[in-house]
């Protein structure tokens, strides 16, 4: 029986028919999606912190307004994604609990500090840029609610990426101090951005199954290469450099070659030893714990009102 269901399921996937929440699905498909979507949602929420860090210090009112709108978008992405994950039978509170207890992960990039205004430009250009590279294929993910959420997410992310590039473009035309600030930010964020695509293909055990289920469409290394190729050209427009002495166009491959990634650092940050892992998680836990009385009150009030309405009817 199970096998017949699995056959029908895989057949649908092969025919590019979307899987919807009430359809039969293998338990492992469900769990893989919960892990992936919740991890993505957590990344949006944790990702608000390094950028929220600069809202009160934004250097002009226009930049302040744009940054507020952008960080608010990230909260909205978190919301769509938590909702998409909820259709798989897990509650938002359970997902928060997994985040707060360290059971669920989020993108390691947000464990790096945002130290200057130029970081707002680089986070938009490189971090959101890498995210888009990862996420555009997810708009065709086999799971319907995830794919639909990603369509909206990607539209906004592409605006974020352009505003980030524009911040850097203005800095590149600015004073010597501003250009230094921008180059320093690029130097700090470049390698962590490359790590956002995840481990090398031969060390990414879930990839094959995820590609078969069309949760994933391209391998980590394919997407990483595409990202390097794009950024290596864009950085020329800015007149800055990427901090990689091995970066070089390879005519034969039709791609840029690039230097080795420090995977030790990657795994250290994943395991909780990045510069801001503790701060980020603590900030989220604090918001959650200190908000408990607010949520209790809202619930008590809603129940009271519902009862009054019932009594009146």
């Amino acid at each position: 029986m199970e096998q017949a269901f699995e056959q029908i399921f895989q057949d649908k996937i092969d025919r590019e028919v979307r899987i919807e929440p009430k359809d039969w699905m293998p338990e492992k498909y469900r769990q893989t999606l919960i892990r992936q979507i919740s991890q993505h949602a957590h990344s949006e929420i944790i990702g608000m912190l390094p950028e929220g860090n600069w809202i009160t210090r934004a250097p002009s009112l226009r930049r302040k307004a744009i940054l507020i709108a952008k960080v608010q978008d990230e909260a909205g992405h978190g919301l769509y994604l938590y909702s998409a994950a909820e259709t798989l039978g897990i509650s938002r509170d359970q997902m928060y609990d997994q985040l707060h207890t360290g059971k669920a992960k989020y993108s390691s990039i947000f464990n790096y500090p945002s130290l200057s205004w130029a970081d707002m430009g680089v986070v938009g250009w490189l971090v959101d840029g890498a995210a888009i590279m990862n996420q555009v294929p997810l708009c065709r993910s086999s799971f319907g609610p995830y794919a639909r959420a990603m369509v909206r997410v990607c539209k906004e992310e592409s605006f974020h990426q352009r505003q980030g590039f524009e911040i850097l473009y203005v800095l590149s035309k600015g004073t010597e101090a501003q250009r230094k600030m921008a180059q320093d930010a690029i130097n700090r964020w470049w390698w962590p951005s490359l790590m956002m695509f995840g481990p090398k293909d031969d060390e990414s055990p879930n990839t094959i199954q995820s590609m078969k289920w069309k949760i994933k469409r391209f391998s980590n290394d394919e997407l990483r290469q595409k990202f390097v190729d794009v950024c290596a050209e864009q950085v020329k427009v800015l007149g800055f450099t990427l901090p990689d002495k091995d970066l070089k166009w390879n005519e034969e491959r039709g791609h840029y070659d690039f230097g080795p990634i420090n995977w030790d650092e990657f795994w250290q940050v994943v395991q909780g030893n990045g510069p801001c892992n503790k701060e980020r998680l603590d900030a989220r836990k604090k918001a959650w714990e200190e908000g408990a009385w607010v949520r209790d009150a809202a619930l008590a009030y809603a129940n009271k009102k519902a009862k009054q309405k019932q009594a009146a009817a």
Partner: peptide, 18 residues
Amino acid sequence: SEWCGHGPILEQDIAITN
């Protein structure tokens, strides 16, 4: 705007930021 990212409920974080 100081609340952004630190609100008690995600929907309300969005509201106060807005």
